[in-house]
């Protein structure tokens, strides 16, 4: 994306709106790393950038410690928070607005149509020693990766993050400023989920056993999730203690059942849970399985419409009934 356009729009937002803080992407000094950055004045906006490396979602910062973001308002008096949002982020935002996690009026959205982002684990695996990646651009199904004195071409498929491969909402669905022309979108694909559904029950159980046994219970999947923002999380409760603190297969399964179920009809598909996992658990499979079922049966897609009532706060008398005595 044109950095100049991004920076200028960000500056314009600061001039026009009552903004205390802008959350955006900044290039890290090392390798392929991209960091969330918090811009509090017009001039700082020059640090902003966007590239296919921007795989992290910034939406969770809105609810993490809102007071911190508003600290900038001592200088500007601003009460609003601006955020750079891709398609999936905009879905998370819609869901947050619908659940009244944060009021729509408080957020200024700089929408970025997204062509998919690069999985850091994949690119670092391919270039393990890359110290100074200067630029990554995309054109016609290839990524062009430039270092100080060399450049490489890699087919997009090879580096694209898994959840981006299945993305049906690359364009922001809600925004105040649109930073680029909209991109083509395709329908959601669930072929991998359907493959898993064909497995025998025991086989699928073995598959997940192997995965959950490795879980460290570091809570990164929960904390990185833009929609896990409860002040009092059921996974942390002590009385009653729904999920024991022991790290073993049973408790880990309880943990992941609770986590994924709480995102049923809410998951925005940003893939943060999977991206942050230090032991590579395929958590998006759980989220997408529920997303698929909910879409097929209840014709509901989380974060697709500002006026939708939350899935589990609504019903249809014609909902499936044949599993009930």
């Amino acid at each position: 994306m044109d950095k100049e356009k991004l920076v200028n729009e960000a500056k314009a937002v600061f001039s026009r709106e009552d903004v205390a803080c802008l959350i955006g992407y900044g290039k890290d000094s090392i390798g392929f790393r991209v960091s969330p950055i918090f811009i509090r004045t017009r001039d700082e906006a020059d640090q902003l950038f966007f590239s296919p490396l921007c795989s992290l979602s910034l939406v969770n910062y809105l609810t993490l410690e809102k007071g911190v973001l508003l600290e900038g308002n001592k200088e500007t008096g601003g009460e609003k928070i601006a955020i750079v949002a891709r398609g999936c982020d905009s879905r998370a935002l819609i869901q947050l607005f619908a659940e009244r996690g944060i009021p729509r009026e408080q957020v200024v959205i700089l929408g970025v149509p997204c062509r998919g982002t690069i999985d850091l684990k994949k690119i670092e695996g391919k270039f393990p020693d890359a110290r100074n990646c200067t630029e990554v651009t995309e054109a016609e199904g290839m990524y062009y990766i430039r270092f100080d004195n060399e450049s490489h071409e890699v087919p997009k498929e090879e580096l694209l993050a898994d959840h981006c491969k299945h993305c049906a909402f690359p364009n922001p669905l809600v925004y105040d400023v649109l930073l680029e022309d909209l991109v083509d979108s395709k329908g959601a694909a669930y072929s991998d989920i359907e493959e898993m559904e064909k497995m025998a029950l025991e086989e699928r159980h073995e598959y997940w056993k192997d995965k959950f046994a490795r879980c460290l219970r570091c809570y990164a999947c929960r904390n990185a999730c833009p929609l896990c923002y409860c002040d009092d999380c059921i996974l942390e409760r002590v009385s009653p203690q729904w999920v024991n603190r022991s790290v073993n297969l049973s408790e880990n399964l309880m943990f992941h059942l609770a986590r994924s179920y709480h995102l049923a009809g809410r998951c925005a598909g940003c893939g943060e849970c999977e991206r942050v996992c230090p032991v590579n658990l395929p958590l998006m499979l759980l989220n997408r399985k529920l997303e698929k079922d909910i879409k097929n049966i209840f014709e509901y897609t989380a974060g697709s419409n500002l006026d939708d009532k939350p899935l589990f706060a609504s019903f249809n008398p014609k909902d499936p009934n044949d599993f009930i005595f």
């Binding site: 699928r204 997940w208 056993k209 399964l253 759980l286 079922d293 909910i294 909902d319 009934n321 599993f323």
Partner: peptide, 15 residues
Amino acid sequence: RRKIFVFRNLLEFVG
């Protein structure tokens, strides 16, 4: 009914 329907599907998916 909605919640239990979805939860049953999740149970089935984890085996």
